[in-house]
Design a protein around this nucleic acid. Sequence first.
DNA 1: AGGCTTCAGTGAATGATATTCACTATTGCC
DNA 2: GGCAATAGTGAATATCATTCACTGAAGCCT
Lengths: 204, 204
Amino acid sequence: MPVISASKMQDRRDSILAAARAAFAQAGFERTSIADIARAAGVSDGLVYRYFANKRDLLNAVLTEFYERTMVDLDAIAEREAPFRTKLHDLIHRHIEAFVVEADACRLFIAEVRTAADYQGSAIQQLNRRYTSILVRIIDAGIAAGEVRADIDKRLIRDVIFGAVEHRAWAAVNGRALDMEATSRGLVDLLCHGLMAPAAGDGP
Amino acid sequence: MPVISASKMQDRRDSILAAARAAFAQAGFERTSIADIARAAGVSDGLVYRYFANKRDLLNAVLTEFYERTMVDLDAIAEREAPFRTKLHDLIHRHIEAFVVEADACRLFIAEVRTAADYQGSAIQQLNRRYTSILVRIIDAGIAAGEVRADIDKRLIRDVIFGAVEHRAWAAVNGRALDMEATSRGLVDLLCHGLMAPAAGDGP
DNA sequence: AGGCTTCAGTGAATGATATTCACTATTGCC
DNA sequence: GGCAATAGTGAATATCATTCACTGAAGCCT
């Protein structure tokens, strides 16, 4: 026999979550206190703990929302019928876009969540796995179509792409400009053709 | 007129630093208290603040030591007379080795320092710049020798290599096995030749 | 209607712990 | 032997995350 309806409880949860998202984005995780979040949501400190296990769980909830939103787009890119190179480009481009458009969420994930002691095996790590596995699907399709060398290490490609974008996009997260199109094109070109000068006699 | 000699002060500083390094490595930054470090070094809490401005400054000092130690090797690799591909491989290999051998320092840098609000423009960032610029020297030499395409984006290469190794080596930092040689070879090969299947008619 | 049970909601108390600061001890110099 | 100067101390302070004993409103039963 709940004292208030399920939808009222959902509203409460949503308003606490929204307050947390705004506060974390504005001041970062460490420098946001539960008291700040509770005040912004118009509730008492204690109530936050009825809806979320602890401060970190609140952060996880903020990021879960972000992941699920972004993955919809990546899935659409992977499922489309298109050449490998196009799909690779579009996935990279959309991934970079996430860093630019949702810089706060990306910063929180990189700085606070991924390095946490309990990240390994967590629900957020599962989401991250699903996110990065979309790229592996694209590579598999490329190999199946004969566009991609069959002997490449798919996990290495994955680490190269996500690692490179993360390094490059950290500038954007910190407020500097980033040319999304130049970066995604450059990365696709480098990956596809490598950086060696053509030996004499190569090419048409 | 110092009360104790400069070398005694250096010893004090060293013993606090050593205690901090051990404690941070064992328990991480957050879960190490100044009281822990002071106890391990055999001094009072307050004395730590005479030698280091604050807890974060202590962490920076631990990592500065690490950087200066590791950069000696990378510099030696870059200065050697050798083909581009050899130098690239050796730099990557030594960089991965740092993640394996000094996993604690790498974890601290990635989790606590690089994402800190005051990292941009800090002395540690200067060190990181010097570290990554060693790779750029190698690329420049490769271009000068005609081994590397002159039209590549050097900063992109840098982000690809350090980003990829970081992603890949995070497993090692968290205690899982990592084949250093396979990883460095695989990355060099991918970078040099790309991942596209040779079109019909390519090759000898 | 009136009493009863169950939770949502509260906010003061608790426990850690970084940092400060008023004080003490020691050293080298005159 | 006395006196600067400063190394060294550790209790006090401030700031949170988290807990928990309590309050009050909503539905249920008689």
